[in-house]
């Protein structure tokens, strides 16, 4: 365990976390207008309709795989009777399908971006940088997968990377465990950390506003004119007012007592 190891696996992760969280907070506070998917579907949609879901669903599967591999300790899966071999077979098969799907989707997206005139025109330097980061992290990840199968010298990541990852969250980084991992893991983890560090400053931020609350909000959104924030300030807004337009009026036919609730309209 030398100084470089401590810096890379003991200090850098926290710097990255701070950059990610701080960057997200900063951007959310000061760049709401820039916080968007910057969709290019208006220009081209035939290829996008194949490539974009492939990439996005792929990367969600990859995310799930990472959570599984990093968060769940080896002892737990062994406790439920899953053999080392079975686990790795499962992880590798599902993981490589997701990884390759993501990569194919991403490559298609990049090809589309380069070959469709308007989409290429709308590509910023920031976008290009982001694509390099994404492709790099993805390739490094796939490489670790391939190497872990064909290179017998690879150390099991569930005994090195995963314990280190979990140790980060209790603020006692297990630098030794990570240092013991194979080089391919080192590269992948470093690239991954770089990706997370630049995340808040690219269009990738849209992932952090995945609209899951759409499932729970009312269809019709009323908002008072008075709620609009003044220049230079950010008000805390609920975002809608509970006005009696129930989505399913046909079956519910609910009538509320008038004026009982707080979401009233005009100046008070």
């Amino acid at each position: 365990m030398n100084v470089i190891d401590i810096l890379l696996w003991g200090v850098l992760p926290y710097v990255v976390m701070l950059t990610l969280v701080g960057g997200l907070i900063w951007r959310y506070k000061y760049d709401q207008f820039g916080w968007t998917t910057r969709s290019s579907q208006l220009y081209e949609s035939r290829l996008l309709r194949i490539a974009s879901p492939l990439f996005h669903f792929g990367i969600l599967a990859v995310l799930a795989g990472h959570i599984m591999g990093l968060v769940i300790p080896k002892s737990w899966t062994e406790a439920v009777g899953m053999s080392e071999h079975a686990y790795h077979f499962l992880a590798l098969s599902i993981g490589s399908v997701a990884g390759v799907g993501t990569l194919v989707g991403l490559v298609l997206l990049i090809v589309r971006r380069r070959l469709t005139g308007p989409v290429f025109m709308a590509t910023t330097n920031n976008d290009k940088f982001m694509y390099v980061m994404l492709v790099g992290a993805l390739l490094a990840g796939l490489a670790t997968t391939v190497l872990s199968v064909f290179d017998p010298s690879t150390v099991d990541y569930r005994e090195t990377v995963s314990p280190w990852f979990r140790s980060l969250w209790i603020l006692q980084p297990d630098v030794g465990a990570m240092a013991a991992a194979s080089t391919s893991f080192h590269v992948h983890v470093l690239w991954g950390m770089a990706l997370f560090a630049v995340w808040p400053f690219t269009r990738l931020v849209h992932a952090f506003t995945a609209p899951l609350h759409y499932l729970f909000r009312p269809y019709i959104v009323y908002r008072s004119r008075g709620d609009s924030p003044r220049a230079g300030s950010v008000d805390i807004r609920r975002g809608w007012e509970p006005i009696g337009t129930q989505d399913r009026a046909g079956s519910r036919r609910r009538t509320r007592p008038p004026r009982e609730h707080s979401g009233s309209t005009r100046a008070k």
């Binding site: 506003t209 609209p211 609350h213 759409y214 909000r217 019709i220 959104v221 009323y222 908002r223 008072s224 004119r225 975002g239 809608w240 007012e241 006005i243 309209t265 005009r266």
Partner: peptide, 12 residues
Amino acid sequence: CPSGAIYKRTED
């Protein structure tokens, strides 16, 4: 709108 960004003003 998944984000709930579109709204109707209560006043007008």
